[in-house]
Write a protein that binds this DNA or RNA. Structure first.
Lengths: 159, 159
DNA sequence: CCGATCTAATTGATGCGTCAACTAAAGGGG
DNA sequence: CCCCTTTAGTTGACGCATCAATTAGATCGG
């Protein structure tokens, strides 16, 4: 059960790794920068607004919102403070639980999301979907699936 | 040359996009967190130390270092200030150009890099290379190539 | 040699993200 | 009813990233 397993990656493997991770990083950053310049929204803003847009009554408890977009509560809290300052959301007291709050989408927030949405989706298409084409899109999906599983099952490939 | 080109991505395409980008983000963040806990180094620290390690005399002009790791000078300057405070690098005056500086790898910095390096490479193998296997590694490389090209040639796929 | 301009590098302001610490109400036994 | 634990949410400190502005030496045309 021991021994010299897990040799280091070869130069070639390392090259591919760097190439891959830098490319996805560049992609994310290009998307973010377009979103920013087209609508003054950060990816975080967009995620929050999207979740609220799809929520019952356009309002959510912070905890629920946080788990829906996969953030920690603290991160969300800080982000909401900044968004509230800009008028994109507002906080309301929660009837059911007086230590809780509710985050409500404002008209301004809804409008900002509306303006951002189409250009953003077009950018996803232009920078990701179209260049890849159907075959590589499937490959991307499979890659994601493999990588997502990879972190957990350290034994899966044991011989 | 106009018309209703560039329709929006389909629900399925969007799902793959989100899956892909979130997975790569999770991967990056897992790597960063292991690096941090194993060696108290951030990915930025690692990149800087690696570049210095490989440089002639283990020193570089900030501009050169910045372009070598693909950062803006300002980002590097802020980062070097933090690294200098921790004793990982030090700044020296530059003989050839008196408005310039040189960043020098300290013994402590070299030692920190040495300690971080192997576990980091092992993590790359464990989280990326091994799960993918040879075939998907090639697929990843091709994906990166396609995506990297994708941003520039907006006409490439025009019919 | 002199002034216009370019370049190296830093700085300050501000947004984003994480961690640990804190506040305060809810719930659940006794 | 009271205490104890859990849960909701915020806060403060700090590192990281970008942008615009700044400082100061290099450089070049005259």
């Amino acid at each position: 059960m021991e021994g010299p397993r897990k040799a280091l990656p070869s130069t070639e493997e390392l090259r591919i790794w760097r190439d891959f991770i830098e490319t996805t990083e560049a992609l994310r950053s290009e998307l973010a920068s377009r979103l920013q310049s087209e609508s003054s929204l950060s990816p975080g803003d967009y995620a929050v607004l999207l979740a609220l847009r799809e929520a019952e009554g356009r309002r959510l408890r912070p905890s629920v919102l946080a788990s829906r977009i996969g953030w920690q509560r603290s991160r969300l809290s800080h982000h909401l403070r900044r968004m509230e300052r800009r008028g994109l959301v507002r906080r309301a007291e929660c009837a059911a639980d007086s230590r809780g709050a509710e985050v409500v989408l404002t008209g301004e927030g809804a409008e900002a999301f509306r303006r951002a949405s189409l250009p953003h989706l077009r950018a996803v298409r232009e920078l990701f979907v179209d260049p890849l084409g159907p075959a590589q899109l499937i490959a991307a999906e499979q890659l994601a699936t493999t990588l997502r599983a990879g972190g957990g099952n350290h034994q899966a490939e044991a011989l």
